[in-house]
Amino acid sequence: MNVASTVVLRRNVWFVVALTLLFSGCSSRTDTAGSAEDSGKPRVALIMKSLANEFFSTMAKGAEAHQAEHAEEYELVVNGIKDERDVSRQVALVEEMVASGVDAIVIAPADSRVLVPTLRRAMEAGVTVINIDNRLDAEVLQEEGITIPFVGPDNRAGAKKVGEYLAANRKGDQVAILEGIQTSFNAQQRRLGFEEAMKEAGMQIVSSQSADWEMSRANTVASSILSEHPEVSAILAANDSMALGAIAAVKSAGRSGEVQIVGFDNISAIQQAIREGKVLATADQHGDQLAVFGIEAALKHLSQEESATSDAIEDVETPVDLITADTLAPPTP
């Protein structure tokens, strides 16, 4: 069966599922670009983590802008979960997208291990899968007997850049790390990058704890760390949402200006915090383009399928840049 026939078949499956969901009262947070009718164009599903996180809302906007510019080439379905830890909902989204007949899934997995079996089943159903942002676990991929290309930055290298900048501008030698969800590969890599930079600089990590990528959780964890370790002179947060929580904790502890903070993602709120001197640095992994890179890889693979070529999709390393007060772009008027 060629790709065109496969696409038509999936449209029919999608139509049946859509009717089922309509009459059963089911719903999901899904935005669709393009017509729901059979257009003959491939349908790509973007499945992200929490849209409450500015990084992922920026990612969604970038993907939607790309689709608008290439409306004749593909249709886009955008999905996100409400909570970074709601892995079961993300699993359900993958299953829903497969049932709806999408041709490709581009996913930023909430967990590097749990999603793999579900993605294997998606691939067995003929869906192209591209992994972005958070790399899937290599051991679990091997156990499942599949290969899924990763399109994204070197998180460890990006975190190390941020840590090295902190070390070069430090006010003290004792620091704490706010980790992401510990089963996520990008959280592990960012922690390792921070640790490597601190070790090379001879700085001591007195506490390293997960704050689950979330601002409120980071506020609580950072407050506890500052209470238990008043000698801490810096907090390295594995994403900018947690850096915002650290800012609030430092302020509540009466230590604004004393405790340096760094983050990762370069969201707009952190850009303003850098300008105000509340945050020293962050890393920009170009969230507005990250999903686009994944979508382009998926479309390339679908095109190869249609032309009967069989080249494997390779990993694509995307840029990650250090952002400081000196390198930050001026605010938009």
Rank of each mutant, 00 (worst) to 15 (best):
M1S: 11
M1C: 06
N2Y: 06
N2A: 07
N2F: 05
N2D: 15
V3H: 02
A4F: 07
S5D: 14
T6K: 11
V7K: 02
V8C: 03
L9W: 08
L9T: 13
R11D: 14
R11A: 07
N12M: 13
N12H: 12
V13T: 12
F15L: 09
V16D: 10
A18H: 08
A18G: 10
L19A: 12
L19F: 06
T20Y: 08
L21C: 06
L21F: 05
L22T: 12
S24F: 02
G25S: 07
G25E: 06
S27R: 08
S28L: 07
S28C: 04
R29I: 06
T30K: 05
D31M: 11
T32E: 08
A33L: 13
G34P: 05
G34M: 07
S35F: 05
A36M: 13
A36S: 14
A36W: 12
A36K: 14
A36N: 15
E37A: 15
E37L: 13
E37Y: 11
D38P: 06
S39D: 14
S39W: 05
G40V: 12
K41C: 11
K41Y: 11
P42K: 10
R43E: 14
R43Y: 10
V44W: 02
A45C: 11
A45R: 03
L46E: 03
L46Y: 03
L46M: 12
I47N: 00
M48S: 06
K49A: 03
S50N: 05
A52V: 10
A52I: 07
E54P: 06
E54I: 08
F55Q: 01
F55I: 06
F56C: 01
F56R: 00
F56L: 02
F56M: 04
S57A: 15
S57K: 08
T58C: 03
M59V: 13
A60Q: 09
K61L: 13
G62H: 06
A63Y: 02
A63N: 07
E64N: 11
H66S: 08
H66Y: 15
Q67S: 12
Q67A: 15
E69R: 15
E69M: 12
A71G: 15
A71P: 04
E72V: 12
E72K: 15
E73N: 14
E73F: 07
L76P: 01
L76C: 06
L76D: 04
V77Q: 04
V78N: 02
G80A: 06
G80P: 01
G80V: 00
I81C: 00
I81M: 00
K82P: 00
K82D: 09
K82V: 05
K82F: 03
E84P: 02
R85C: 05
R85F: 02
D86L: 00
V87P: 00
V87S: 00
V87E: 00
V87L: 01
S88C: 03
Q90E: 11
V91W: 00
V91E: 00
V91N: 00
L93M: 08
V94W: 00
E95R: 13
E96P: 01
A99P: 02
A99C: 06
S100W: 03
G101F: 02
G101N: 07
G101L: 04
G101I: 05
G101H: 05
V102M: 03
V102T: 09
D103Q: 15
A104G: 10
